[in-house]
């Protein structure tokens, strides 16, 4: 059973921020799909709960040629999955969403809630990092924008200051010839990946790899960028052997957990496979772009 708490349900960002500044130790709840589990297990017993799910102003998806994609923090997973704009410009996001939990969970859970929960097994964070996303954080003092990559601090810990909340995810328009893909190992569709990989590849006009991002889920205490694996690819004309090498390097960089769903050894092996698979798909997309 969940321990008692005081509950607030602000309707505007301003209201939410003033509550946050008033109750420094308050916890924000959005869709609650991650938080309620933790509360029920009593891993965490907040005294104050600020429910921001009702702030409709933060439920939006905008795309502009110059600015790129803007997703409001309270946009439900299912909205992202089904958004025509996202399916057109960032199909990887829709594919990733389709494999998150069940439709019921996606209908109620929000993208911002997922990211702020800071679970290294989550899928959105690695994909956003691969897409060079930035996060807009709001507080009564004003707004700041940080790289998604800087956001995850540790297991279930993110870089939100007291009084601060996530308001928007910003994804720049990708460079020409960019391809991004995500894949994960699921025992059952919708599972948290035993291991997951998001890969983005940018090709130059000659078809050489100009930039690459490889980000893993469930491979460390935070979404993990496999820097050595990325370096292996940059500056080269890519082929299967190189992608396989990138997988090997990423596997060496990973420090995965061992739990009931898989041993650390198995996860390390699977990093090789999923980095290679996601990279191959990303490369195919980059070439087609």
């Amino acid at each position: 059973m969940i321990a008692d708490f005081e509950y607030f349900a602000p309707k505007t960002v301003k209201e939410a921020l003033s509550l946050l500044s008033q109750y420094k130790e308050a916890k924000i709840i959005a869709g609650g799909q991650s938080l309620l589990v933790v509360l029920k297990q009593r891993l965490f017993s907040p005294e104050y709960l600020i429910d921001i799910k009702g702030i409709s102003a933060l439920d939006y998806i905008n795309y502009e040629e110059g600015k790129g994609l803007r997703i409001g923090a309270l946009t439900p997973h299912r909205t992202i999955e089904k958004s025509p704009v996202i399916q057109k410009y960032f199909p990887v996001l829709s594919e990733m969403e389709n494999n998150i939990a069940t439709i019921q969970t996606r209908n109620w859970g929000t993208i911002g809630g997922n990211i702020c929960h800071g679970d290294p097994a989550g899928d959105p964070a690695p994909v956003f990092i691969a897409l060079k996303a930035k996060l807009k954080l709001a507080s009564l003092g004003g707004e700041r924008v940080i790289d998604m990559q800087e956001f995850s601090k540790d297991y279930l810990e993110v870089a939100l200051d007291p009084g601060e909340m996530l308001s928007e995810i910003q994804i720049p328009k990708p460079a020409p010839h960019t391809g991004t893909a995500h894949d994960k190992l699921m025992v059952m569709k919708g599972d948290m990946g035993i291991i997951g990989a998001a890969v983005s590849i940018v090709l130059d006009s000659k078809g050489k790899c100009e930039d690459a991002r490889i980000v893993l889920s469930n491979a460390a205490s935070v979404p993990l960028r496999a820097g050595k694996a990325e370096k292996k690819l940059i500056g080269k004309v890519l082929n299967d052997a190189l992608l396989a090498e990138a997988g090997e390097l990423a596997s060496a960089e990973a420090d995965p957990p061992a739990d009931v769903h898989g041993s650390a050894e198995y996860r390390r092996e699977m990093v090789k496979v999923f980095v290679r698979r996601a990279a191959a798909k990303a490369l195919e997309r980059a070439r087609a772009a």
Binding site: V37, T102, V187, M188, K189, G190, D191, D259, V260, H261
Partner: peptide, 14 residues
């Protein structure tokens, strides 16, 4: 170690 439906894997409709 897996006393929840999240961690206890059942075959689902899909």
């Amino acid at each position: 170690l897996n006393p929840s439906i999240a961690d206890y894997k059942l075959i689902r409709s899909l």
